[in-house]
Design a protein around this nucleic acid. Sequence first.
DNA 1: TAATAGGGTGAACGATAGGTCACCTGCTCT
DNA 2: AGAGCAGGTGACCTATCGTTCACCCTATTA
Lengths: 198, 198
Amino acid sequence: MANDTKERILDAALEMFSQNGYAGTNIRELSASLGLVKSGVYKHYESKEAIWNALLDQMIAYYGEHFGSAEHLPPVPDSLEELTLLTMHMVNITIYDEKIIMMRKVLTLEQYRDVRARELATKHFLTGLTEIFTRIFMGMMEKGLLRKDDPKMLAFAYTTPISALIHLCDREPEKTEEAIKQVEAFSRHFIRVYGRGD
Amino acid sequence: MANDTKERILDAALEMFSQNGYAGTNIRELSASLGLVKSGVYKHYESKEAIWNALLDQMIAYYGEHFGSAEHLPPVPDSLEELTLLTMHMVNITIYDEKIIMMRKVLTLEQYRDVRARELATKHFLTGLTEIFTRIFMGMMEKGLLRKDDPKMLAFAYTTPISALIHLCDREPEKTEEAIKQVEAFSRHFIRVYGRGD
DNA sequence: TAATAGGGTGAACGATAGGTCACCTGCTCT
DNA sequence: AGAGCAGGTGACCTATCGTTCACCCTATTA
C-alpha cells in the first residue's frame, strides 16, 4: 500500500501517454482515472516530467529484463517449422499484450522529443529483434537448417517485415488477424527461400 | 500575395507539428515563426484544428500526386544492378527531402489520434511502397531478372526493411549515412537471393 | 475620391494547464 | 496516549492555451 499508488500512477501514465502523447496528457485526467485529485499525484512525483522520466526508467528496465538479457533468449529451433512457430508465438505475445502495445505507442509518439525514448525505440523496433534473431539464425545455420549466409543480414531481412506488421496492428487493430496471417505467410516464404530442411 | 500567408501557415504547421506534435504546438509560436502575431492566423484559418485538417488535405493530395498515380511509377529496371540504383535513388530522395521527412514524422505522431492520418500512415509506411515494388518485380520477373515468385511477397520482403531504415533516419539522423549503406547492402543481398541475372 | 475589403495588430477573453499550500485523516511507532 | 508521518483533499496561484474583437493600414475599385 506504500508505493502502490506510485506504481498505479505510472500505469495510468503509460495508458494516457500512449493514447494522447506526453503533451496531450494532463495531470487532472490522469489523477481522475486513479480516483484521486491532481494534487495527490504530486505527493508521489514532483512534476509531470518526473512521471515521464520514471515511466521511461521503468520501460527501459522492463525491456532489459524481458528482451535484453541473454537468459531470455528463445531456444534455437530444431526445425524450420519450429522457426515459424517460435515467430508466431513471439508475435502473438507482442501484439496482444496491452502493456507492450502501449510501450510501443509511447515510444513512437515521443521518439523525436526525448533522447532516451529515441534510443529505446530503436532497440524496440529494430536492433533488439535483429540481435535476437541473429543468434537464432547462427544456431540454425550450425544445425544445417539454414543456408550459410550472413546471419545479421538474414535477421534484418526477417525481423523488419514482421516489425512493420506489428506497427500496422498498433495503428489499425482491426487488421490484426490479417496481419498475423501475413506474418505466418512471410515466415514460410522466408523458410522456402533460405531453408535447407525438407 | 493573396493566399500566400495561408500556404506559409501550412508550411509552418507542418514544421511545428512534425517536431512537437499537434498537442505540443501552439498558435503563438507558429505565428511568430511567420513574423506575425497569433490573431493574424485566424484571418486565414478559423481554428487550430482547421489548420490541422487543411494540412492533412494537402498531405493527402501531395501523396496522391507524387506516389499514388500510375504515371509516377518508376520504370522497370533492365538489370539487377539497376534495381539497386533505382532503390538508392528513391531512398535518397525520401531521406533527404525535408518536406517528406516532416510528413512522415507528422503521420507518425498523429496516427493514433486522427483517422485520416492513420490511413495515410499505412499507405506511406507500408502499402504504398509495397504496391509500387509489386509492379516493378512483376516486370522484372517477366524480363527474367527475378525468380518467378509471388511479386507481392517479394515487394513486401524488399520494401519493409528499407522502410525500417528510413524510419531510423527520421529518428536518429546521425545514422543516415550508415543506414544508406545498409540499404544498399540489403538491396544487393536481396538480388543475390532472388535474382537470376549474372 | 470615397468606399470597400483583405490582411495585420494588440488587448482582452474564458478555459485550462501545471504546480503549491494549508489542512485533514488514519496508521504506525515509541 | 501522543507524536509523527505518509497520503489524500480542495482552494488557489500563475502562465499559457485557443479564440475573439475593435481597430488600423493599404491597395483596389466604383
